[in-house]
């Protein structure tokens, strides 16, 4: 497993965060976070609840607007309010704790919606230069890709049902392929297994492992220590809005340095 990771991660910087701060009113949630993410990195973020790890993740794609700092992605600073955040979010997928599938859309529509919408937008702006010759072609292609993604997670027979009929594990797997359908450069996972029944955690983690093995860059906030140890090539420990420790998993779990981390690990392991 460790050889795979070495192959997957590259030296190409894909995301660089500098001095990221976030206040909610006079509550300081993030107090200056610096991190560089290379293409192919699998970074797990752990920490006690209320430590700011979810806020950190949500600041990366500006779901929460950072109070201060820089988030360099695709040559632009996402923390700058003038950048077109919608454009960058297409390259930065997100998977939520509570799945957040679109309730009024069928499973396949959930997956196709964003690719079709952004495809149409590009087509309207660029006409033939967008690489499509018609709107029908955009839909057809998106449908084919969505079907392939559903086949991959073994839910092709669920294509036309509404999310309310799926189990939690199925919902989360659909949510993951919905993010994949946009072919993002990074996917952010916000506690993807925390809202699942224990028996469904495995199927979701398996899919995430699978996505990781393909070389996708992933930043994962999680409580699954076993998963972090096995899949991540770097693990971060965040508490009180700062990164207290950042190391390869063997080092992180085998030889933790910071007393807060030692204390935390002794409680959860």
């Amino acid at each position: 497993m460790s050889e795979n990771k070495a192959v997957a991660a590259t030296e190409e910087v894909i995301l660089k965060v500098e001095g990221l701060k976030k206040d909610f009113g006079d509550k300081h949630v993030l107090n200056g976070i610096d991190i560089t993410v290379n293409r192919g990195d699998i970074i797990c973020v752990i920490g006690p609840s209320g430590s700011g790890k979810s806020t950190f993740l949500r600041c990366l794609n500006c779901m929460e607007d950072p109070t201060a700092g820089h988030i360099m992605f695709d040559g632009e600073d996402l923390a700058d309010m003038s950048v077109d955040i919608n454009l960058h979010r297409q390259n930065m997928g997100m998977v939520f704790q509570h799945f957040n599938l679109f309730n009024n859309k069928t499973v396949i529509q959930n997956i196709m919606l964003a690719p079709v919408h952004t495809g149409k937008k590009a087509f309207r702006r660029l006409r033939e230069k967008s690489g499509y010759s018609s709107v029908a072609e955009i839909k057809e292609k998106a449908q084919k890709e969505a079907m392939a993604l559903l086949k991959r997670i073994g839910l092709e027979d669920k294509a036309d049902v509404y999310p309310s009929t799926l189990s939690g594990g199925q919902k989360q797997r659909v949510a993951i392929v919905r993010a994949l359908a946009m072919k993002p450069k990074v996917i952010l996972f916000d506690e993807p297994t925390s809202a699942l029944d224990p028996e469904m955690v495995g199927e979701v983690l398996d899919l995430m492992r699978d996505v990781a093995a393909e070389g996708m860059t992933m930043i994962i906030v999680t409580h699954e220590m076993g998963f972090a140890r096995e899949v991540a090539n770097r693990v971060l420990f965040i508490d009180e809005g700062v990164i207290l420790e950042s190391a390869a998993p063997a080092e992180f779990f085998g030889n933790p340095k910071h007393p807060r981390l030692k204390d935390f690990l002794s409680k959860v392991l």
């Binding site: 794609n61 779901m63 919608n86 454009l87 960058h88 979010r89 297409q90 997928g93 997100m94 939520f96 957040n100 599938l101 679109f102 919606l113 964003a114 919408h117 952004t118 949510a175 919905r178 993010a179 946009m182």
Partner: peptide, 8 residues
């Protein structure tokens, strides 16, 4: 949030 997260 889910809509915004996919870039809509």
């Amino acid at each position: 949030e889910a809509g915004r997260a996919v870039g809509l």
